Amino acid sequence: MEPLVDIVIEDARWEALGLDALAELAVRAAFAELGLPEVGFSLCLMGCDDARILELNGDFRGKPKPTNVLSWPSEERGVDAGEVPDLPEPGEADDPESLGDIAISYDTCALEAAEAGKPMADHVSHLIVHGLLHLLGYDHIRAADGDLMEATEVRILARLGLSDPY
């Protein structure tokens, strides 16, 4: 089976955690929950460290500080407050529709997981789902959108056997 996620590892600690397997499971669970086919889409996930994500967060969001996850959708999918975004149409198997890119920082994820007393793999799976939902047009700027996004995340994480992180 073709991988859904192209993985770019900039920090070797991600290899030890098994970022590629975590990403595949998280994305497949999200696609199943949302009714998206596993063929016809692609996305890229970069596993990096705080220094790299600080640079990206500064360049793209004007926030020169580390964060856990960043997303760059290939297409803006604006919706009315609290509305489910229109899901993209899949491309062909040999020419998949790109959903966009996600970057995730090992340092911040490890710190957050430790502070929350949860396994790193569970926290990373949640953040991959969170980043993917951003690629699909979900957001949490407005309260109604945040409620919808959180509820969607909780359902996807339940498919992975993970408890409600909220």
Rank of each mutant, 00 (worst) to 15 (best):
S105N: 03
A32V: 03
D20V: 09
D164Q: 07
T108C: 09
G137E: 04
S105F: 00
A93M: 10
F41K: 00
A23F: 07
E24Q: 13
L25Q: 15
F41T: 01
Y138C: 00
N57E: 02
I53W: 03
L45S: 10
W14H: 13
E112A: 11
L162F: 05
E150M: 11
A29K: 09
E153R: 02
D94L: 08
L25N: 11
M120R: 11
L136N: 02
P3G: 05
A121Q: 14
D101G: 10
A23G: 01
L19H: 05
E76D: 11
G78E: 15
G47I: 07
A114S: 13
A143D: 12
C44K: 14
G137R: 00
M149T: 12
D49Q: 06
P88K: 10
L43M: 15
A114P: 00
L25E: 14
L135R: 02
A158K: 11
A23Q: 00
P88D: 02
N68V: 10
R61M: 13
K118R: 15
N57P: 04
A116V: 05
E75F: 14
D49P: 07
I7P: 01
L22I: 09
R159E: 14
G131H: 01
S74L: 08
R77T: 06
V129T: 09
E33S: 13
G47T: 03
E89W: 06
D145E: 03
R77P: 02
L135C: 05
S71P: 08
D147M: 13
D122G: 06
L54N: 14
V154D: 09
I156A: 04
H140P: 01
E38S: 14
A158C: 06
D95H: 09
D94I: 07
G18V: 10
L162R: 11
P85N: 05
R61L: 15
L22F: 03
S71N: 07
G40N: 05
G47V: 07
D49H: 12
D95A: 14
H126T: 08
S42H: 10
D147R: 14
G35P: 08
E38H: 15
A30T: 06
P96F: 08
D107H: 04
P119E: 12
S71A: 15
D20Q: 12
R142A: 12
L162K: 11
